[in-house]
Nucleic acid binder design. Structure first.
Lengths: 190, 190, 190, 190
DNA sequence: TATGAATGAGGGTTCATTCAT
DNA sequence: TATGAATGAACCCTCATTCAT
């Protein structure tokens, strides 16, 4: 089926974009990786940019779905926060996934860039909303929740730049550490 | 003389690389911005890549100098940590500066990339060292200090992606918030 | 059946070739206009060039038929000349028809090009023959009849470049004017 | 000098465009003919289309200059008409020149196409003006002068399609024949 | 009879870099 | 010190055509 082939190509391209960057990946590289001809690429996608857009859009949609799942679940706010942190961490430790998401978006058309930004805003918005409720309940300290949300995402997202998933610290532990830093801080009490 | 012109060119290039990315900036763009001919660029620099390398190297060296200054100063460990955080935050809110540092380094030669990584390791190493001492003194909780250092850098560095220096939150306040999150966490006590 | 479909495709292609030129019309354009798939085109025609050839050949054959009809008819030579002029004018004012006939024939194979030229020669030959007879009868002035024939075709054929069939001058009037210029010239007598 | 090289390239391109058509001529063909590299073409011209535009514009400007020269000269109206006819004929018998001017303009941008049309309108306008004056003086018959002008241009321009400059009829004779047909018509008097 | 899938060949254009001056 | 001129290499994309079904 056409959509299956599209998925194969998207996966091949995603890997290359993550490895070498968008501009340093040629359509021939992608075609070779997907085991089709260069021309065939254009049977499945309108352009190289469209390919990148679809990859990013899928990734973001998937993240959005997960965060919405958590949002709707019947658990405490603190538990929701914890789950989002876990979820985001497990994404962030996937080098290729994060490398894609921080990819230089200068090669994306204005229209597509706006669509992606919209999804990103939605994603962050979900977290901010939870933080807002926690704040209203005085369960967290009185801090600008937007800053809080981005501080959180930054801390976690940055992991792709240094974390080695095959090292001695397992992803679950990493998530636990982030959780501790974020919720309790690092200073010893007393 | 020559070095002055080099600096002009580096500044022009740095701005363009930050704005449009390395691959999307042509040598002609840089030459125009520096008000010289395209060919003249090659009198001052060996290649476009060398230009990027020098820009990144200068930036990192400057950061390294600052962190070494703090390291040597005669203040408490906690105070040092605080100062590093402030310093890093004030860099991170400069969009162009950070955009450069997270720039796609796929276009940099292996040799130069190693040199940059070495400097980065030095930089992070300074922070880890301070955290290690704090940990030894039981002034902070028992957490892997490498994770801690990167969590810290991530939280702060990510700011270039969302923070607006002209918005209602001033850089100093942002630094203060990061400081609070990092040192005390976000949960209300009691 | 097959021939009917061929005619539909030829008509669709003829319109597009006239509008956008042969090279600027893709086989996909033609297929879409004929409401079939791109691949199906090749069930009905050997190639894009063959399609163009058939279109031109049909058009020319039709012209040739008409001129032969006139040639055979039982009317005076001057009347025949007049009828040819009318016939040719009514073709020439059809933008699409003429645009096709002056289309860049660089994309046509040598063999096909020769076949088309042969028909064109036949067509012109019929007019020259009539002019020759008129000349022999001293009904027209002593001018090289080949030049005369082409002067005539040129004057009329050129109309596709400027004449607007929906303007104030009707095709019949245009034909009349051409007739007057050609037969009597433009200078006032006396 | 840059402009001299441009002229060489334009000439090479003009010949190829006339021979093979615009779409069937590659930039590599042009570069080879002008004895430069394909890339160098873009040092002298913005695009292949720009090259065609400049060629056509130069040709038309030259025609416009000539017709303006005639317009201004101190000779009778009939003499002016005669001179325009001579001038136009000597252009029309140059196969390559005319082939260029009737070239498929579908590949030219809207803006450039309008500029060319404007020049063409100017050119025709000069002839129409002379015909209008002749008509006012009752030196020619009462015929729509626009039709007259185009009939004239058509008759002459068409020559590129059949006339052989090396044949038995010399260009000057051809011009004379056209003049006769156009001014006196072809029917014998009496 | 009809077409979805696939592609070889090639086209216009870009760009970092070189070099003679 | 500075650059106009030039280009090799490569890139994204298009298109007529084929073929298994």
């Amino acid at each position: 089926m056409k959509e299956q082939k599209r998925e194969i190509i998207r996966n091949a391209a995603a890997r290359l974009f993550a490895e070498k960057g968008f501009e340093n990946t040629t359509t021939r590289d992608i075609a070779r990786a997907a085991d089709i001809s260069n021309a065939s690429l254009y049977y499945y996608f309108d352009s190289k940019e469209e390919l990148l857009y679809q990859i990013l859009d899928k990734e973001m949609s998937s993240g959005l779905d997960m965060i919405m799942e958590i949002e709707k679940s019947d658990i405490s706010l603190k538990e929701k926060l914890s789950r989002i942190l876990q979820m985001h961490t497990s994404s962030a430790v996937d080098y290729n996934k994060m490398k894609l998401l921080v990819i230089d978006q200068n090669s994306i058309s204005h229209k597509n860039k706006e669509a992606l930004k919209e999804k990103q805003r939605d994603y962050v918005g979900k977290l901010i909303k939870i933080l807002d409720e926690l704040k209203k309940n005085r369960e967290i300290v009185d801090i600008d929740t937007t800053v809080l949300a981005f501080a959180f995402f930054g801390m976690v997202s940055w992991a792709y730049r240094w974390y080695n998933p095959n090292g001695k610290i397992k992803p679950a532990e990493l998530s636990e550490i982030f959780h501790q830093i974020f919720t309790k801080g690092i200073y010893s009490e007393g």
